[in-house]
């Protein structure tokens, strides 16, 4: 739901180069809207019942921004150079099983915004369940063994077939062995 609110907020913006301060203001408004809508829709629930992290990207030909709350990871890649690349790492608490959610009181302190220069033409966002096999051990780029065949397939196939294939990959036993957490991967490539 928070993803939808953030997307809705940005698609309403008239196409114009955005400054980082604009992005922060719009994102904060979107998260506030989502929090209010949740409390209104579920009056007996607490915000903590809807804990979720956020990983998003807003981008056009002039570049863009990656937005994160918590332990999702985002990467921007130029011409299939998987590592090093622009990598926005997860944010954990003191221990690995702790992170930050948009539902917490101090969520603003953990809303991270990273500018993405226009030369980057491919974006990969993953939830923490897919992080361990997507990022390299040195955390400076993406693991070619995993990401290169996946991105090549997604580019060469129709969306419907790509979605099925991606679901198979993320639900594979080898992926579950590495992390029991749910796994989401978003891929986008800009056509020049």
């Amino acid at each position: 739901m928070v993803s939808q609110c953030v997307v809705d907020a940005f698609v309403e913006i008239v196409a114009a180069p955005l400054q980082e301060s604009d992005v922060r203001r719009i994102a904060e408004q979107a998260v506030e809207t989502c929090r209010a809508q949740l409390l209104q829709a579920y009056p007996d629930a607490k915000l903590a019942d809807f804990h979720a992290t956020l990983a998003a990207v807003v981008m056009d030909d002039s570049g863009g921004f990656i937005l994160q709350i918590g332990d999702g990871m985002a990467a921007a890649v130029q011409e299939r150079q998987w590592a090093p690349c622009l990598l926005c790492l997860p944010e954990n608490g003191e221990y690995a099983e702790e992170t930050f959610f948009f539902t917490q009181d101090r969520w603003r302190e953990h809303l991270r915004i990273t500018p993405v220069p226009s030369e980057y033409d491919e974006l990969i966002l993953v939830t923490d369940g897919a992080y361990s096999f997507t990022a390299k051990p040195a955390a400076n780029g993406l693991d070619r063994d995993f990401i290169a065949p996946v991105c090549a397939f997604l580019e060469q196939n129709e969306e419907e077939r790509g979605v099925v294939a991606l679901k198979q990959i993320l639900d594979h036993a080898n992926a579950r062995r590495i992390s029991g957490d749910d796994k989401t991967l978003l891929w986008a490539r800009r056509k020049r």
């Binding site: 361990s132 096999f133 990022a135 390299k136 051990p137 693991d143 063994d145 995993f146 065949p149 996946v150 397939f153 077939r161 099925v164 294939a165 991606l166 198979q168 990959i169 594979h172 080898n174 992926a175 062995r177 590495i178």
Partner: peptide, 10 residues
């Protein structure tokens, strides 16, 4: 469907 994918635990 996707061939040659390797899962490394990094």
């Amino acid at each position: 469907l996707i061939p040659d994918v390797v899962f490394n635990d990094n």
